[in-house]
Design a protein around this nucleic acid. Sequence first.
DNA 1: TCTGGGGTCCTATAGCCT
DNA 2: TCTGAGGCTATAGGACCC
Length: 351
Amino acid sequence: MDEGRRRILHVDLDAFFAQVEMLRRPALRGQPVVIGGVGDPTRRGVVSTASYEARRAGVRSGMPLRTAARLCPEAVFLPVDFAAYRAMSARFKAILREFSEVVEEGGIDEAFLDVSSSARAPEEIAREIRRRVRADLGLTCSVGVAWNKLLAKIASDMEKPDGLTVIRAGDVEARVWPLGVRKLLGVGPKTEERLHAMGVRTIGDLARVPPGALAGEFGPAHGAYLARAARGVDNSPLVTEWEPKSMSRETTFEHDVADRDVVRATLRELAEDVAASLRKAGYRARNVTVKLRYADFETHTRGTTLPAGVDSGEAIAEAALRCLARFPGARDVRLVGVRAGRLEPLGGGGP
DNA sequence: TCTGGGGTCCTATAGCCT
DNA sequence: TCTGAGGCTATAGGACCC
């Protein structure tokens, strides 16, 4: 890193949910722990977080709990306790705010800090943050330091868990280019597969593809993004505050449902929950969308725009039921969801 | 007995208007 | 009046993130 560049930290808590559970139940330390769903691997659900011991057995986030149980039968399975994780997350973010006013909260377990204006070296700040998180919360985290968010995020992942990685000017070719394209933010399974089909496996491979070819393959926006990202170029600012765009609730049935009355009743409950969230946050919604996922995992949505913003369970349920009626056929339903969109802040003129 | 839940953003398409 | 090009909006789907 050199003068004139920003100094960005990415701080990421290691296996966050598992660490919180181990604080509450120290006997779990050193054991394979899998957190997800209702904590019962015979029920529907996926892995939210696996301890590093469970990861050694091949357990990964997003994997069905049943699969995790097959890979690691001796693992302890626990339900997700979001309230506990949110409380710990708030303490974590409060610590980070002591080190910079410019903090972008990513997920529940990570954040970016812009420390460009600090007189201290970013590495030193990173070490101090790691000390504080360990001393005050009893948690380990991994920190990446670079001159933009893209590289800071890649860096924090390089020496997980409990690592500190600095990417300096001139490091990109030697340290970033050998990594797989999947390490780039914005490259998921689908994009990775398409890149592999083009013979592009590493970030370095990607950097050697002419930007025009990427634009042709992935469209102007995504193509240009990939070309820049592969070169470590990212000027995006930290986003320190934002307005919610939508609020939703969805649920997967334990067993697929053929009875539309059951779907309708569930939809009403979800609508009440969404409405409660809207009121709590002080928004009204002008769009309501219903999502159905069928037994074969095919997913469809139907939405409607309302003449005026609503925040009552009754109004959202009424709109949702009209959407539901527009779905064709009588297929077994696996999941049903309700989303409120086009949010208008209460007491504001709207977006 | 595969495949959660809560979000954001992008893209394709269709209809409407000028 | 007809036709076409472009812009705008609403809608639905999909990729991606944690």
